[in-house]
Simulated scan of single mutants.
Amino acid sequence: MLTASGLLALAAPQDAEAAAYCPGRKARTLPFSAGTVLVYKRGGYVCAVTVPKKPGTRRTMSVSVQPRGGRPVVDAGRFAYRAGPVTVHAGQRCVRVRGKISGASVSSGWILC
């Protein structure tokens, strides 16, 4: 079993890293030029992490999750490996997820409705 999990981590390091921080099932992958935002959902909660394509160098990163009708929950700063995780209780509401690394960014629009 250990070998299988090790192979999984090698095959998808971004997914494995985000899964360590966000509970639930992967609901969306939002790729962009500098990295990926991974979105997970469990019950009425949505969690997101921004992961750079080339981790290890400190740079400006952010991730935010905003339930429709609510305020965004944001993690922003200078990170080497990831921004987040951030988690919100969305219930049955749509959410907007955004991620940014240096000047590159992605926004999901309203999803998971």
Rank of each mutant, 00 (worst) to 15 (best):
Thr3Asp: 14
Ala4Gln: 14
Gly6Ala: 15
Leu7Met: 12
Leu8Gly: 10
Leu8Ile: 10
Ala9Tyr: 05
Ala9Trp: 06
Leu10Ser: 12
Leu10Val: 11
Leu10Lys: 13
Leu10Tyr: 08
Leu10Asp: 13
Ala11Val: 01
Pro13His: 14
Gln14Thr: 10
Asp15His: 13
Ala16Gly: 05
Ala18Val: 13
Ala19Cys: 10
Ala19Asn: 06
Ala20Lys: 13
Ala20Asn: 10
Tyr21Ser: 09
Tyr21Cys: 00
Pro23Ser: 09
Pro23Val: 00
Gly24Leu: 05
Gly24Glu: 07
Lys26Ile: 11
Ala27Phe: 07
Arg28Trp: 09
Thr29Glu: 15
Thr29Ile: 06
Leu30Gln: 12
Pro31Tyr: 13
Pro31Cys: 13
Pro31Trp: 12
Phe32Glu: 06
Gly35Asn: 03
Gly35Ile: 05
Gly35Glu: 04
Thr36Ala: 07
Thr36Phe: 07
Val37Ala: 09
Val37Trp: 01
Val37Arg: 01
Lys41Thr: 10
Arg42His: 13
Gly43Ile: 13
Gly43Cys: 12
Gly43Lys: 11
Tyr45Glu: 15
Cys47Tyr: 04
Cys47Asn: 08
Ala48Ile: 06
Ala48Lys: 04
Val49Leu: 15
Thr50Arg: 01
Thr50Gln: 06
Pro52Leu: 08
Lys53Cys: 01
Lys54Ser: 10
Arg59Ser: 04
Arg59Ile: 00
Thr60Met: 07
Met61Asn: 05
Met61Gly: 07
Ser62Asn: 13
Val63Lys: 01
Val63Ser: 04
Val65Asp: 03
Val65Lys: 00
Gln66Gly: 00
Gln66Lys: 13
Gln66Ile: 00
Pro67Tyr: 05
Pro67His: 02
Arg68Cys: 06
Gly69Tyr: 04
Gly69Thr: 02
Gly70Asn: 10
Val73Glu: 11
Val73Pro: 00
Val74Gln: 05
Ala76Gln: 15
Gly77Val: 10
Gly77Leu: 10
Arg78Leu: 10
Arg78Gln: 14
Phe79Lys: 05
Ala80Tyr: 05
Tyr81Ser: 12
Ala83Asn: 10
Gly84Val: 06
Gly84Cys: 11
Pro85Gly: 08
Pro85Asp: 06
Val86Asn: 02
Val86Lys: 02
Thr87Asp: 00
Thr87Phe: 02
Thr87Glu: 12
Thr87Ala: 04
Val88Lys: 03
His89Ala: 09
His89Phe: 12
His89Gln: 11
Cys94Tyr: 09
Cys94Arg: 11
Arg96Thr: 11
Val97Ser: 05
Arg98Ala: 08
Gly99Met: 06
Ile101Phe: 04
Ile101Ala: 02
Gly103Met: 03
Gly103Asn: 11
Gly103Leu: 03
Val106Ile: 14
Val106Asp: 05
Ser108Ala: 12
Ser108Val: 11
Ile111Pro: 02
Leu112Phe: 08
Cys113Leu: 07
